[in-house]
């Protein structure tokens, strides 16, 4: 119903896409007024308005209250728009929070190669972002945000599960803490390509008929 994943959605990392948000936070979101009042029956089109209205990125604040941003992330996971739509979101450069939203969603759900291809150009975007977490508001920048998406397993401020994205990657153990952006990115992309078979195994499963989510 209002909280179920759209029928016919592809499983991501072998499970319901909404499960990428931790259970506790997911339930908090389902209980929040913003979700019930403003996120009801959103489509990929009407979601843009809501994304533009958000004033900060972040996961939860104060007493584990979900931000509007994370609510919209869950909404995206729920309605699972087409890839082209997400790319369109990314291209709208004046709406930075829409861009940040799309970047996070892409990081959560897309293949590693696509993630790098789509998100690396954003490292040139230096627009300011407001970040809200448990301790309050902070200033961050789009390139920083995207860099964290590309390098961190879990955005420390964003209290959400992202590591599943990386789990099918066998190259994980070989990875060392990056020193500069350049090194990381150069090193990372080849890893994805070299191990393409193994990478694809984890990610191609969803495309079989049996993995379609049953309602």
């Amino acid at each position: 119903m209002a909280n179920t994943t759209v029928s016919g959605a592809l499983a991501i990392h072998g499970q319901n896409p909404q499960f990428l948000v931790e259970t506790i936070i997911r339930n908090r979101i389902y209980d929040s007024t913003y979700w019930k009042e403003h996120c009801f029956a959103l489509t990929a089109e009407t979601l843009i308005d809501k994304a533009i209205e958000t004033r900060y990125v972040g996961g939860v604040y104060s007493n584990q209250r979900p931000t509007q941003f994370i609510c919209l992330v869950l909404k995206l996971l729920q309605i699972q728009p087409e890839k082209e739509i997400l790319v369109e979101y990314l291209r709208a450069d004046e709406f930075k929070y829409l861009r940040a939203l799309a970047a996070l969603y892409i990081r959560l759900t897309f293949r590693a190669v696509d993630v790098y291809e789509l998100l690396e150009p954003l490292l040139k975007d230096y627009s300011k972002l407001r970040l809200r977490d448990v301790s309050g508001f902070h200033l961050t920048y789009m390139d920083e945000f995207v860099y964290n998406l590309l390098t961190e397993e879990r955005e420390s401020e964003l209290e959400q599960e992202q590591k599943q994205k990386q789990e099918p990657q066998p190259g994980r153990e070989q990875r060392q803490k990056p020193h500069t952006k350049q090194v990381t990115l150069r090193r990372w992309v080849p890893i994805c390509f070299e191990k393409s078979v193994e990478v694809a195994v984890g990610l191609k499963i969803p495309f079989t008929q049996s993995q379609y989510l049953s309602r």
Partner: peptide, 23 residues
């Protein structure tokens, strides 16, 4: 019903263009 309409790429593009003009 309990199903949501799926918006197409064209709709999304149009919406973004509209919002761009508005802002």
């Amino acid at each position: 019903t309990t199903r949501v309409a799926r918006s197409t790429l064209a709709q999304v593009q149009a919406r973004i263009a509209f919002l761009r003009e508005k802002t």
